[in-house]
């Protein structure tokens, strides 16, 4: 794997730090006019999601991490693992709940999502920004109320609970922004 020096640290670069794959978020060059140069770097640990700040002597280097984001189709959940498929190569990957994390709330069979691979093994799963899911449980709708004011909780087929307007009924399919968990609209079948 390639080695990257502090002056190559750009946002998004994946490197190995303390044996974990990490992504550079921010890199600030700090140098007294007549002294040693440093790089203060904000890094996200891709395993834990935690953001940490580290300081390096300028010119130090870190090994690159073999991390890539790949579009995959979510296939099914066998109880222990969720299975994904790379649609061009048909290659399949399995990920446990630790790797899938909160993405599980938005994964519907056959939907596309992003799987982050580290050394060819799933490291994280990111759902599409918008998903369409069926409401499996919510209080009966209030007829005539289309104002969208107020709202009520609705449980979706994946188990996620979102706030929806009062007029939205059980059995309907809605569009949700997975980044905020917010209801966007009803989906006409």
């Amino acid at each position: 794997m390639a080695v990257f020096s502090t002056n190559e640290f750009r946002a998004g670069l994946k490197v190995m730090l303390d044996n974990d794959p990490c992504a550079i978020i921010e890199n600030e060059f700090v140098k007294p006019g007549k002294g040693q140069a440093f790089n203060r770097v904000k890094i996200r640990n891709l395993k834990t999601g935690r953001v940490i700040e580290r300081t390096f002597k300028s010119g130090e280097s870190l090994e690159g991490a073999d991390v890539i984001d790949m579009d995959m189709q979510y296939l099914y959940n066998d109880g222990d693992y969720r299975h994904f498929m790379q649609p061009e190569s048909f290659e399949q990957y399995q990920a446990d709940s630790k790797v899938v994390g909160d993405a599980a709330l938005w994964l519907k069979d056959q939907d596309m999502c992003t799987v982050t691979l580290w050394n060819d093994a799933p490291l994280a799963v990111t759902p599409a920004n918008f998903v369409e899911l069926e409401i499996v449980e919510t209080d009966p709708g209030v007829r005539g109320d289309t104002s969208g004011g107020g709202g009520k909780p609705a449980k979706l087929a994946t188990g996620a609970v979102v706030r929806v307007p009062l007029f939205v009924a059980q059995g309907e399919v809605i569009k949700v922004d997975t980044r905020t968990g917010e209801y966007i609209s009803r989906v006409k079948e």
Binding site: V30, P32, Q36, F38, R54, T55, F56, K57
Partner: peptide
């Protein structure tokens, strides 16, 4: 919480001054 300072500066007085001045004083 400047653990990197210890690794970077070792026993070099001038490195310690540059590090601490840059991040804690300046």
């Amino acid at each position: 919480n400047l653990h990197d300072a210890i690794a970077i500066c070792g026993d070099s007085h001038v490195l310690w001054l540059d590090f601490l001045f840059s991040f804690c004083v300046q």
